[in-house]
Design a protein around this nucleic acid. Structure first.
Length: 239
DNA sequence: AAGAGAGGCAACCGCTTCTAC
DNA sequence: TGTAGAAGCGGTTGCCTCTCT
């Protein structure tokens, strides 16, 4: 049952009021977004630290985007989920201003139901891709899609298409390379600077046409580098 | 107009991981 | 080295709103 812990300690539960939001925002202004267990003591809020942290992270934090996800954001979610699975916090790092909760809700709402239909999963996948009209027909999208397809080996027909497209990406023309590089720039331009820098090595491998692409290796490489937020626990942070 | 069902989202829970002592 | 507390994660729940009949 929900709420047993909060109930035991007498914490208030349920929707936040404007007054509570104000108190929490003031606390963060003065004390920073840490030491959540102290919020109740300093503000008089009868909320657990966890509840306060969640409210701040998902609703009050500056820089959060409100409103519907853009087609580009939807496309990124689709691609990264194909690679990472339910690593919502990791996916959220690639979508500045979006929270893991928001992305998780979005995915459940838009995709989970489709996945339960066993016979037309691939068709629904394609339909969804067409629907969101991903503006970036960029290398990563195709490469990762192909990698996923290959690894799953769902059908011989898909294997056949996969091989054809692999050939294309292994031998692009100069114009194609240039075009891909431009799109890559656009793709990464919305990322925070630190993130973009951290991932330079990773993304470079996706755009290096000098070497034939080994999709399984590529995906493993991506998985290894993208697991910095995985595992359920928080990342090390100096106190 | 009203009720039922679906969709969307905020918030909570249990668990894991990390740090400080 | 062990342990308690804090922080963060993914999964789940419940409520409000919207749409359909």
């Amino acid at each position: 049952m929900m709420g047993s812990q909060a109930a035991q300690k007498g914490w208030k539960k349920g929707p936040w009021t404007h007054e509570e939001d104000k108190l929490l925002s003031e606390y963060v202004t003065w004390h920073g977004d840490a030491r959540w267990s102290s919020v109740a003591k300093f503000t008089g809020l009868n909320r657990s630290g966890k509840s306060c942290r969640l409210r701040w992270v998902n609703y009050l934090r500056p820089g959060l985007k409100k409103g519907q996800l853009t087609p580009l954001e939807e496309g990124i979610i689709i691609e990264l989920h194909a690679l990472l699975g339910n690593k919502w916090s990791t996916i959220a790092k690639y979508l500045p201003g979006r929270t893991d909760n928001e992305i998780k809700n979005y995915w459940r709402t838009h995709f989970n139901k489709r996945e339960k239909k066993p016979n037309n999963k691939k068709q629904e996948w394609k339909k969804q891709k067409a629907k969101v009209q991903i503006p970036l027909e960029c290398n990563i999208k195709n490469v990762l899609s192909q990698a996923e397809t290959k690894m799953e080996a769902k059908s011989s027909e898909m294997e056949e298409n996969n091989k054809k497209e692999m050939g294309f990406f292994m031998h692009p023309t100069i114009e194609q390379q240039h075009s891909f590089n431009l799109m890559h720039q656009e793709f990464t331009s919305s990322w925070p600077e630190t993130l973009a820098n951290d991932d330079d090595d990773l993304w470079f491998s996706l755009w290096d046409f000098n070497e034939p692409l080994d999709f399984e290796d590529l995906v493993n490489q991506f998985r290894n580098q993208a697991t910095f937020g995985a595992g359920g626990g928080h990342r090390a942070k100096p106190r």
